[in-house]
Design a protein around this nucleic acid. Structure first.
Length: 292
DNA sequence: GGTAGACCTGGACGC
DNA sequence: GCGTCCAGGTCTACC
């Protein structure tokens, strides 16, 4: 068994910042509302290891991470990198809080994601054109059938689409998932999409060329890459426009109003929208960290 | 450039 | 228990 300590910013709150996006409820992530810990396996050089992340001394205190087996120095560095990606531990919120001061005092602004871009892409595809329960089922079954630590590109690429459909319940997404996995088997694709020197427009254009990725998915993957300049408009966002912002009209008319409304937040517009929407959820249902 | 219809699963509903 | 309808985002064909 090995232990790590991760130090984040003073306003880092594990319970709040992990439970800030629906992916914290998707396999193989396992949030324990009672203990306020996140447990999940990660792929490392010598095989998978399961990590439990806690913040025993409360918000702002260091994160204590425990692995279920002894890990090497190289594996420790890799695990640290993956966990920091998930938690967005070193993301600078100054620009966000400058354009949207509503969240400055609380320090809100981090949106949970996956340890790898590939997992974020697959989770996005499995959230399209399906109810949330369907998304939960697909991710659970991908982990049960292919890999408990979440399928890697090479593992998914060699599966037959019919197998994914029958055993993982992914429906018509089967071929698209296999095609995506084949593309992501080449590390250059991830490197290109994570290249910070490229513009948002450039990345967005490349994302739209990927199988199964349309306007919503492209914008969502962009935010998962740390680029918040585009709104990922789905039916939930249209509902948010109606219910929280008082917009009226057809979905297309509301979409235009949403673009106009969030324009003031510039390159941070998705993050402004998301924190606002998530706060509405929590005002109705209580803190997400307590959701069953 | 805009739009209709198909794609698949699971839940709601009526019988 | 069975059949029908509907929601969800992307893709293709067509105008």
């Amino acid at each position: 068994m090995s232990r790590l300590t991760l130090t984040g910013p003073d306003d880092y709150d594990l319970a709040r910042d992990v439970c800030s996006y629906g992916y914290f409820r998707l396999a193989p992530n396992d949030w324990d509302p009672g203990r306020e810990t996140l447990t999940r396996p990660l792929h490392l050089v010598d095989g998978p290891a399961t990590f439990t992340i806690a913040q025993p001394d409360g918000a702002g205190a260091p994160l204590k991470v425990r692995a279920d087996r002894r890990i090497s120095r190289a594996e420790s560095a890799d695990a640290r990198r993956q966990i920091e990606r998930m938690l967005r531990l070193h993301e600078d919120l100054a620009e966000f809080h400058a354009v949207d001061p509503r969240w400055k005092d609380s320090g809100r602004g981090r949106i949970f994601r996956s340890p790898t871009l590939f997992e974020d892409v697959i989770k996005t595809i499995t959230s399209c054109n399906v109810t949330w329960k369907g998304t939960i089922n697909m991710n659970r079954r991908l982990c049960e059938v292919i890999d408990p630590a979440f399928p890697r590109p090479a593992q998914l690429a060699r599966r037959r689409p019919a197998t994914l459909r029958a055993r993982c319940g992914v429906g018509y997404r089967d071929i698209r998932l296999v095609e995506l996995a084949r593309l992501f088997r080449e590390p250059a694709l991830t490197a290109r999409l994570e290249d910070e020197s490229r513009s948002d427009d450039d990345i967005h254009r490349e994302l739209l060329g990927l199988p199964g990725v349309g306007p919503y998915a492209a914008a969502n993957i962009l935010q998962l890459l740390g680029r918040f300049s585009r709104l990922a408009i789905d039916t939930e966002m249209i509902a948010h426009g109606r219910e929280a912002l008082g917009m009226t009209g057809t979905p297309r008319q509301i979409e235009k109003q949403l673009h106009a409304h969030y324009e003031r937040f510039g390159d941070q517009k998705f993050r402004s929208y998301w924190i606002e929407r998530w706060t509405h959820y929590e005002s109705d249902e209580g803190p997400a960290s307590g959701w069953a």
